[in-house]
């Protein structure tokens, strides 16, 4: 098993957290994993992206040039990354923030989830990233949901411990959305 993934969105949408969470879950399952954040002039409101590689074997280069999966949280990220996706790749897109016509020329598998909308209904728009992650994990179970929940408990501690529940709910909602 080898999965190469890029997560991209606005700064503040939790792109880095999504990637880190996935990496943490993969590590808990004993897999090899690398997380490489784009660390340019990314600021809240600008674009942010991160590359994650999960593998059963040792990972050389941590860079992802042709991802198996793209998790796209906003329109500018789709424009920037969709051409890099592998032919047989999978696109998970936050359809609340992406125009439907932008997807019409994409030949790869597209899974649209209104992540921001679902997150808002759950009471916290900031967990849209987790909704998209849930949808992704339904389509491609690269790690178990239980590992992701365990990873949440590791990453959200102290003052942030109270956020574990809403994140879990969001992941579940995204997972169940993708039937």
């Amino acid at each position: 098993m080898r999965e190469e993934l890029i997560v991209a969105g606005f700064g503040g949408q939790g792109v880095m957290f999504t990637g880190t969470l996935l990496a943490q879950a993969a590590m808990l399952e004993g897999k090899f994993v690398t997380f490489f954040p784009a660390y340019g002039a990314e600021v809240r409101g600008g674009t942010a992206n991160a590359s994650v590689i999960i593998s059963d074997e040792e990972i050389g280069s941590p860079l992802v040039s042709a991802p198996d999966t793209l998790i796209i949280l906003n329109q500018p990220s789709l424009d920037r990354f969709h051409r890099k996706l592998k032919k047989e790749g999978q696109l998970v897109v936050n359809s609340t923030l992406v125009q439907p016509e932008a997807l019409k020329n994409i030949v790869q598998g597209v899974s649209q989830v209104p992540a921001s909308e679902i997150a808002e209904q759950l009471g916290n728009i900031r967990v849209a990233n987790m909704v998209a992650l849930g949808t992704y994990l339904k389509i491609k179970p690269v790690v178990k949901l239980s590992s992701v929940n365990e990873a949440l408990a590791t990453l959200l501690t102290g003052k942030k411990a109270g956020l574990q529940e809403i994140n879990k709910k969001a992941i579940k909602a995204g997972y169940e959305f993708s039937k």
Partner: peptide, 10 residues
């Protein structure tokens, strides 16, 4: 280098 400084790995 910047890459090995920035990556997260187990």
């Amino acid at each position: 280098d910047g890459v090995v400084g920035q990556i997260l790995e187990p």
